[in-house]
Design a protein around this nucleic acid. Structure first.
Length: 595
RNA sequence: GGUCCCGUAGCUCAACUGGAUAGAGCUUCUGCCUUCUAAGCAGACGGUUUCGGGUUCGAGUCCCGACGGGAUCACCA
């Protein structure tokens, strides 16, 4: 059991004995004692002073005395300006290391002990390749899925693939006009790259037509609405919706190319999905659900035939759900998809949507509508909203070519990892295949950690020219120390050093830092799950790693003075590597054994 | 204009949700590899937490106001 709740109980009961007043254990503020003071845990006594009717210092002193006398792990205390610093007996930590921390499931809750959650992430359009923004999205969603799993939830990872609409029609038109039958095989291009190429080609042709039209005297707005190539794309969309055989066939072919391309990108990223939803399958069910809601009076039809919902009573606006021609909008499709998912998974407690913060209003409205349609799960649904990845020049714009391509960026990271390792002669003696597996893990760790260590809701800066670091507060730093720890443990095994807990030295001051971080892990995971925030876990991974790195440098683990000390250090190393592996796994980062 | 988010060292980010002297990394400088992997360690430099009020034992954190940046308020997705 964690020390903090124990202390809260102890303090509450000591408080009652000493001052005759009741306080709830949850009222007791327990925190780690700051380094510059003596002790392990600190009770903040200001809030208690009111009920004890003593000055904070006096309250702290009397409480301290009572706690030392009471049954429990408190063996000493000191008081500084209303802060009660408690010293926990070293034996307590020693026991903890060989019991709680030794459990194989340390830090996680049993599978199925918490409700079923669906996590949506990625959800790309099928007209262009994935970019840096998608990387943040995927890494976040994937990590949150694993964190929720670790806290006992059943998790279903999904994405909605936006496979229909004007965007893919643009690529189709451009490919038909300029493509000359190009295919991924004939060009050697990844399918998503090839389709993206024609999306760009469309835009170029469109702009050229607009330029010609405006130079001919047409107003800019009119030109943008009547450029022939745009009308052609709109016509293709109409043909698609009518099920025109030729159009649907080309649509299938080009989407197929994109899916092949995405497949390799996801594999490189190390993310996966349990179930895919396609907008082309779900967009019509949204319309049916809206029409049902209309009959039940949730929605209203205006004179022109369009369907709306009035949310002004809830402080929002009126929102369109079906156009006057009966076609659907984005919101209609999301309603349909959401309800389909509740239908697919009847035990579903909630859905988590990993989508950029520019859609906060959209999800507010969506959840409100789901709730009005009678789905009480809507109250627990969550929009995992995250900020943009900004470039030094500003936002990424795909049409202006300022996107950072996901595949290129990952390749680049692998290359840097390779250069650094080769320069230092790190992986000599390993087969080339194994070497490149290491470069991939190291490079990917740099990228994932970089994107996940920042609070999701904040916009973050990525400077392509400065590139992502491999030194300092980075993924590779964490991997490096894991590898050092693992290397020691392998060696200990081969030298047949016993990790015999009953013959282990008692931890001292130097070990307490590491023990403290180890002790925090379950709470950090729980907090990361509660707030859907992997950055908390990323910071924990860095902090404990820094602690280990420092300890490692100051203390020889295998070369300890005596067997008992060596056993303690080996136990610490083992707990460190195992906890770190879990923490990094929950970030979606795989660790190498060498680097 | 309404609503929401953000503003912390030269740069990129933390700060256990109101606690003690605001921490890391990068950059610059100084030390440390006959010893478990130097992608490392130890140290120095660097701050009026954008500004002004307020709340209280205590504010980077909460409230009000200003300033700066971003997002959103479509019969686009």
């Amino acid at each position: 059991m964690r020390i903090d709740p124990q202390l809260q109980e102890l303090v509450a009961s000591a408080f009652l004995d000493t001052f005759g007043a009741e306080i709830a254990p949850s009222e007791v503020s327990v925190q780690k004692t700051r380094k510059e003071f003596e002790g392990d845990r600190t009770i903040v006594c200001f809030p208690l002073a009111r009920k004890s009717r003593c000055a904070p210092d006096a309250t702290a002193t009397q409480l301290g005395q009572a706690l030392v006398q009471a049954e429990g792990p408190v063996e000493g205390f000191n008081v500084v300006k209303g802060f009660l610093n408690l010293e926990i007996e070293a034996q307590y930590w020693k026991n903890w290391l060989v019991t709680d921390a030794a459990s194989a499931s340390y830090g996680t809750q049993p599978a199925g002990s918490a409700p079923h959650i669906m996590v949506e992430y990625s959800s790309p359009n099928t007209n262009k390749p994935l970019h840096l923004g998608h990387l943040r999205n995927n890494f976040l969603g994937h990590s949150v899925s694993r964190i929720l799993e670790a806290t006992g939830h059943k998790v279903t990872k999904v994405q909605i693939i936006n496979d229909r609409g004007i965007h893919i029609c643009k690529s189709m038109v451009a490919w038909s006009k300029f493509g000359e039958g190009e295919t991924p095989t004939s060009t050697g291009l990844k399918g998503d790259k090839l389709v993206g190429k024609y999306y760009v080609a469309f835009d170029r042709a469109f702009k050229e037509e607009v330029r010609v039209l405006t130079e001919g005297g047409m107003a800019a707005k009119e030109a943008e609405q009547t450029a022939p190539i745009l009308l052609e794309a709109q016509n293709v969309l109409r043909l698609w919706e009518q099920g025109d055989e030729e159009t649907v066939s080309l649509w299938k072919t080009m989407n197929g190319w994109v899916y092949e391309g995405f497949k390799t990108t996801y594999a490189t990223m190390g993310v996966e999905f349990d179930k895919l939803y396609y907008e082309s399958d779900t967009y019509l069910t949204g319309k049916e659900r809206v029409l049902e809601g209309l009959e039940r009076g949730v929605f209203e039809r205006t004179d022109d035939g369009a369907v709306w919902i009035d949310l002004t009573a809830d402080g929002l606006d009126r929102k369109l759900l079906l156009r006057k021609d009966g076609t659907t909008v984005y919101m209609t499709q999301d309603i349909g998809t959401a309800l389909l998912r509740f239908q697919d998974c009847p035990d579903l407690d909630r859905q988590v949507y990993t989508v950029g913060n520019e859609q906060e209003y959209h999800f507010k409205v969506l959840f409100l509508i789901l709730s009005k349609l009678g789905f009480e799960q809507a109250e627990r649904c969550h929009h995992l909203s995250y900020g943009m990845v900004e470039l030094p020049e500003g936002k990424m714009k795909s049409r202006e070519g300022t996107v950072v391509d996901a595949d290129d960026l990952m390749e680049n990271m692998f290359g840097i990892a390779k250069d650094i390792a080769q320069e230092a002669g790190k992986l000599e003696g390993l087969e080339e295949k194994d070497q490149s597996a290491v470069f991939q893990r190291v490079g990917l760790s740099a990228l994932k950690y970089f994107l996940l260590k920042v609070d999701p809701k904040k916009n973050m800066m990525f400077d392509p020219t400065a590139s992502i670091d491999f030194y300092g507060n980075t993924g590779p730093f964490i991997l490096f120390n894991y590898v050092r720890g693992r290397s020691i443990l392998r060696r200990a095994e081969s030298e047949q050093h016993d990790i015999a807990p009953n013959q282990m030295a008692t931890p001292g001051r130097a070990e307490m830092d590491l023990i403290g971080w180890l002790h925090d892990l379950p709470e950090v995971i729980q907090e990361a799950a509660n707030t859907y925030n992997p950055s908390l876990l990323a910071n924990w991974c860095y902090d404990i790693t820094k602690g280990f790195s420092s300890y490692y440098q100051e203390h020889s683990i295998l070369g300890a003075d005596n067997a008992d000390t060596r056993a303690l250090r080996l136990v610490l190393t083992e707990r460190f590597t195992r906890s770190l592996k879990l923490g990094m796994h929950l970030l979606g980062i795989a660790l190498p054994e060498r680097m």
